[in-house]
Design a protein around this nucleic acid. Sequence first.
RNA 1: GUGGCUGUAGCUCAAUCGGUAGAGCACCAGACCGUGACUCUGGUCGUUGCGGGUUCAAUUCCCGUCAGCCACUCCA
Length: 467
Amino acid sequence: MESLGIMGGTRDFLPDTMIRREFVIDTLKLLFRKYGFEPLETPAIERLETLTGKYGEEGEKLIYQVINSGSLANLQPGKRLEHALRYDLTVPLARVVAMYGDEMLPDPKNPKKQLRRLPRPFKRYQVQPVWRGDRPGQGRFREFYQCDADVVGATSLLVEAELIALAVEAFKTLGFQDFTIKINHRQLLAGLISWAGVPKSKEATTLSSIDKLDKLSVEAVKSELHEKGLEQDQIEKLFNVIKLSGNGAELLDEAGALLKASETASTGIAELQQLLGLLKALQVDGQHYKIDLSLARGLDYYTGTIWEIVTAAPVGSVGAGGRYDGLISTLSGGLVDQPACGTSFGLDRLLAAMEHLDLLQQIPRNTEVLVLRFTDPGAELILLSLVCALRKVGVRTEIGYNDAPFSPDGMRQQLGYANEKGISYAVIMGPDEMTQGMVTLRNLLTREQSKLPIVDAVNLISSRLHS
RNA sequence: GUGGCUGUAGCUCAAUCGGUAGAGCACCAGACCGUGACUCUGGUCGUUGCGGGUUCAAUUCCCGUCAGCCACUCCA
């Protein structure tokens, strides 16, 4: 019985789910383009050396290695694997920037001039699967999709502001009403930690505890920090700042006053203040973002602003981003050193959140009209020309594959098909309609139907669909 | 990488204290019938995930194994 199956942690996306995935992906891509990002795709398989040494010890183990020639038979003992499946979309981006960043093309408008193949700053989006050699678990897959938009080669805070504006617009477009982008700054955190007297060696572990504040109580986090060897007064100092609340600007002022001794923290605070101004100027709805000093996002490579998107659905964060000015240099092996900032949407979590919030039913199935087919004399020509006419005006139309003359069973069978496929309208032309020169248009949702003259059936149907 | 749960006809599931398995849907044949989860009649379908053990007897108990799901760790 279980002779067929797929590898654990991988998935088949059947049409019903694929329609939803594409809806989300298309929405995101449209917005990426709207903000001036251009598409990039890179191979699933990269050279192993491109990927190794980039993700730290934990990540290293999860790289999906690929046998050289693609065949076990050609694998020689002792010979190393040299390829691997891509682990994320950021390393390929770094590689692309390193490989093509300086490439010039002749300017078609002016033969004496040359243009960069990759404009600088380079704004690209990329929606592709990545692989992790991980044991699959809940919400964790061996193969999953990332949707990234990054800007390489610009230090302006406007990049952060635009990426956050884009994210807000994306979530609104997808139908979310209740969502928040939590914003913080790595330098603020780093400054805070050293200001509190916590040694640099404990910075990462301290951050990972602080990041749990949305799940654990203040007390639980404090005791966890205590177990990690932080002094009581260090912990108190940390929380004096972290627990600050209020609207963005006030909160930052208070934090700034407390942390004014730390130059690093002050830099971070100044940038956040500037960012708030830019977001306002970009007319981003203030209810959808807030400064959250407890946001840490464990990732070591962030150097500036960091953010995370949460919704009302209990599925964790559905997107995240930040500035990582040193990463391109690291990932490209020191070949290029460019500042970068990006945001990423978790497609699977996004869909899970939409499922929770009932936002998916708004997404229609593909076919809009099914023309029932009967082979009665004279019917074929009319039916097929009707199909052509509907398609010509852009109505997604199917014809029933019924090879028999009009019969109740044929009707049932074809309407049943329409029902299974979630088609919203059926066009019926039986003997009655034929003699009257009419067609019946049936709304399969409301089960209401009416007869239309054949001559303006197409117009009436298409206008009904677009109202 | 730890802990918990599940695995029964094509699908969704049931079987009280261990007594060799049922229902709905689907499917097939037919009735009815200008209309999609309509109605009626009849019918097909399972070595209960796999392997082993306890027992007179196992879907029910025990061990192993595989697969899937959920909670931690971690991330996306």
